[in-house]
Design a protein around this nucleic acid. Sequence first.
RNA 1: GCCCGCGUGGCGGAAUUGGCAGACGCGCUAGAUUCAGGUUCUAGUAGGUAACACUGUACAGGUUCAAGUCCUGUCGCGGGCACCA
Length: 910
Amino acid sequence: MAGRRQYPFDLIEPKWQQRWDELEAFRAWNPGVTIPPAHPFAVRHQAPAETLPKYYILDMFPYPSGAGLHVGHPEGYTATDILARYKRACGLHVLHPMGWDAFGLPAEQYAIKTGQHPRKTTETNVATFKRQIKSLGFSYDWSRELDTTDPHYFKWTQWIFLKLYNSWFNPATNKAEPIEKLPLPPELAEGNSPDMEARRRGYRDARRLAYVSEAPVWWCEQLGTVLANEEVVDGKSEVGGFPVTRKPMRQWMLRITAYAERLLQDLDSIEWSDSLKEMQRNWIGRSEGAEVDFQVAGHAEKIRVFTTRPDTLFGATYMVLAPEHRLVDIITGPAQKAAVQEYKTAVAKKSDLERTELAKEKTGVPTGAFAINPVTGQQIAIWIADYVLISYGTGAIMAVPGHDTRDYEFATRFHLPVLQVVEPPAGIPWQGFVDDGLAVNSSNAEISLSGLATPEAKRLISEWLAKKGLGKKTTNYKLRDWLFSRQRYWGEPFPIIWKTGLSGVPYHEALPESALPVMPPVLDDYKPTSDGQPPLARAKDWVNLPDGSTRETNSMPQWAGSCWYYLRYLDAQNAEAFCRPAAERYWMGTAKVEGQTTPGVDLYVGGTEHAVLHLLYARFWHKVLFDLGLVSTAEPFFKLVNQGLILGEDGQKMSKSRGNVINPDVILADYGADALRLYEMFMGPLEMTKPWSTKGVEGVYRFLGRVWRIFVDEQSETDYEQNCTANPEAASRFLAQIALSASIQATPATPAQLKALHACIKKVTEDLDGMRFNTAISALMVFINEAIGWPTKPAVVLREFLVLLQPFSPHLAEELWDKLKAVDGRADAGSMAYAVWPKFDPARLVEDTLEIPVQVNGKLRDVLRVPAAITPAELEAAAKASEKVKPYLAGKTIRKVIVVPRKLVSIAAA
RNA sequence: GCCCGCGUGGCGGAAUUGGCAGACGCGCUAGAUUCAGGUUCUAGUAGGUAACACUGUACAGGUUCAAGUCCUGUCGCGGGCACCA
């Protein structure tokens, strides 16, 4: 490291971290809990904790990887810690917890390689993360620490799964309801035969929020597991970037699509960034349109299509089915059978990556069949092509090549007819015009759209189709149901068993709550079995139950634990419930508390990588729990902020291969936690991507050194090289012998000193409210730059400054706060954890003179120093009288003079 | 291709939302302290000029007494979505 140590942070920081631990200084108190009278919380607040307004501030909990903390972690954690400390100082009851999202692939892959149990790896990694996080002095309530792999935790993850399993979505009420209350159709209502029982069971199973499906799913050979849509990026696995293929498998699904509309609508009720909301909107992918039925000529079959442009129906000149469409084999003519089969096979062999990457040129083959356009009566060819996806809409489209880019490309390639049915604004060619215009060439004997603007044409044709029974208005979503099972060992087992029903058909049943937690079996080998079964299937004793039923061998995805951890923090130790209602209502802000306005988590900070995975899944679970009356808010996270990425010093993304990774442990050892915290906040706005600079750390470190030297007598810091780090007593003796500077006195502050202080209070307070940490720190620096020149420094002023510094660099602030006792004798200075935030007094900032810039024709010509009480007329006169201004007015006529009181004078002259 | 966001000194970034562009920090220059290096302290630091003038917030226009900020177009960078009918 460069330079001498600025101050003994290596003694100060462990001392205060230990003190906070001993005091349990940052514990948050649930309703009904008695607070020890000596606790600083009780000392500050006379009222019971549950009558104070709460502030729930949450970090995205980390996956404890083997690599340890990287510098991105402390960025978000410092931001939330500063706010947690600030809100505590402002008198709010702050909940600020931390835990571990510890199920996941790396621990399992390490187990496959070494045979070491993932539990062991996880424990080691958690210990490392905890040590690192603690060394940064964050004010977490560690009594609420949780770990998703702890049976006391995942018992309740399994319990919530049972809630999903035992619920269905009632479209009439738009809510999840218990499955027992699902109305049965009349034909199933009666009869107790085994057959009727099985049919009733089938009816219910098809409607549960957690259900089993045989549909094609993403399979990743390298990872040996299936993946959710959200985990597949550009045809590759999000983790590892391995190829994935489509494969029909029996899997557990969660019916998130039932919540598509609410997940979309409720975005309007929460304070997230526009870009993040937009990402969720895109993912949900709502589009309004119509379904239209096309009769297949010479067949009984109809083809149903979804279109967002029913107004272009007159321009539909052919149709396309997805190659996987049910009707393809039925309608294909004998002459086309071979070609169609060949095309289907070719498409099936393509991975999704190839299907999109090689999509430069459209492909397809005709089926030989024709459909009848319901408005023109024309026969139009039916093709199959892989640009139509089986998974969206109905898997079939009406092609309007005149006004759809993809259809236009296809029609051009295969010489299919192109008709104009929309008139663009003047000057734009109609071919391939896809925006709104005026309908043309769109009339038949019964209906005419011609001349109508696109929205009206859509409305009219939809009504007409509905009246004729040919179609109806409908809404489609891109969102698919959530594939919820994985072929992995290191995840929550499902609380599900399988039984054999009539004629050998297997069916599933939930285990009772009393069977929770379902523990995973002990295994020697964590690989999937050779026949592609999940590793849990290897444990025969575990799988096979005495009554002949067998356990579900899939496990839950990593997202399961993070879907509800923010609720477990509210009542983390509770063995009887996932969360007690009183605690839930208090911390989620729905209990009646004076001054409480925010529903849900007040502030959630984390990376943008969870924009559509964790944040969508958690909202979904929360809404189900809300419907079932288990939580009291419709949304979990009221305000959400994404921290920006920290790049390497070379401006590139940090990576081992580039060799530009900054290890926070090294920074910590060289400059201390306070400097690291301060630097990460000083780099720039929290949400921005910004490069690391170790020189920048030195800068804020020097600032902390200046703060230290304002307070202490430099002559008394005798021996910096003395090593007391390993010996707390020696450290404490050493720190105690460092005397306060003689310039600090219990004297009243001068007006100039109060002005500097209150300017700082104002700026820091406003900037913290707006989460502008970088400019708040610059205000602290401005204050110190000024105060360092004061011959005598009043203790009252410095105490208030320390309260402002404390959220940012709490260790140094505590040490100096403690030392100030020697001058002002204030004995209440044991810990700053609940020190009261100073109030800014505008009276202290009143200026008696102002500097007023004077412009002539927009150019600055003078700056006048004038009394603050000056009238606009006097100000104008003073401006015109200025010797610096006069030459620019000479020989010109003043056309206009603008006087902005207390701001500026602008003269226009010609 | 479509949808967001952003372009300010050598660098990270400020600018009360239309009112003195460059706060604060890094770096750099000079001086003091020191045997010396480091540290610390003091002064300076957008370009330009001997000093003024003048020029400057990606580029080109526009609105205004006044534009980094508002409007139109262009270019560049970052992120998201990507055959979603």
